[in-house]
Amino acid sequence: MIKNNIEYNNIIYTVKVSSFIKYVFPYILSVINIILIFIFVKSVKSEKEKVKMELVNEKLDMQYKYYLMVKESQEKMKRIYHDMNNHMENIKLLKNSSEEVNKYINNIENEVKSTKNIYNTGNVLLDIILYEKSKICIENNIDFNVGIDFSQCDFIEMIDISSIFSNLIENAIEACNKIDDNNIEKYILIKSTFIKGYYVVRFENSKINKVIIKSNKIFTSKKDKFFHGIGLESIKSSIKKYNGELKIRDSEHKFIVTVHIPFE
């Protein structure tokens, strides 16, 4: 009787455990599936961020090397620019009224105009970036107005200077190039100031395209949103490195980005 009772109890216990497992197992399976999906999504997101950062670093590295290559050319242009102006004035004084001479001088003046935007911000790399972007603006009839003092910003690394200024100016040029209304002026305005322990740079450009801004994030109409987001992520990453902040404002025909970076 004792033996039978033990066996009976074991059977009852087994049946209860089996029933419990049968009842709980679908829920356990669901939880396991949710965990696996979560791990998969997190892994995909992590891989996507990794690829994005690799593309950002690769782009910045290419920009940095390019600007260093241009440095020597810009230095030469600085040396000859003032001499060219003097030569042009002398030729004007000595020339006769021949139309061919006038045409020749005008052609030279047009060539000089493309190299007259030599900047002196206090940072060689930033000077080169502004010079290169100004040439693009001239080609696209965009008024490029810059007033930047970078003399107290030695703590900002060159790779971040390239990231912030190159990407923001490129975005501004792209927005201006979308303007097909002759009544809307195409312009880019960049000003900086030092105030209350912050270095503040204000980027303003005209535009015609609609921009959606939510939580200080830009939602673009571009088809390739992933690659378009790389530039903005690169800017934010560089600013965050210095505990800075990026603010975005938008109106019907104006787009404004303000960068605040604390400095000692």
Rank of each mutant, 00 (worst) to 15 (best):
E72C: 05
K65C: 15
V101Y: 07
K116T: 13
H253L: 06
F227D: 10
V31T: 10
M88I: 09
K135R: 03
S43M: 11
Y104W: 05
E204S: 04
I12P: 09
I34G: 12
G231R: 14
I118R: 07
P26C: 06
G229E: 05
N141E: 13
I188Q: 00
G147C: 05
D180W: 05
G197D: 02
S221Y: 09
C153N: 12
S30R: 09
F165W: 15
K223Y: 02
D143R: 14
D149K: 13
S163A: 02
K103N: 13
N57Y: 15
F150D: 03
I188L: 09
N171Y: 01
N96F: 15
N10G: 09
K196T: 14
V17F: 00
G147Q: 08
N216I: 00
E233P: 13
N140G: 03
D180K: 06
T121D: 09
L93S: 11
L232T: 10
I32F: 09
K217F: 06
A172V: 12
I184E: 03
N106G: 03
G231T: 10
I256K: 05
F150T: 07
G244C: 11
N107A: 11
N171T: 10
T220I: 04
S134K: 12
N209T: 06
V70P: 04
N140F: 09
K92F: 02
N177W: 12
F20H: 00
F155I: 11
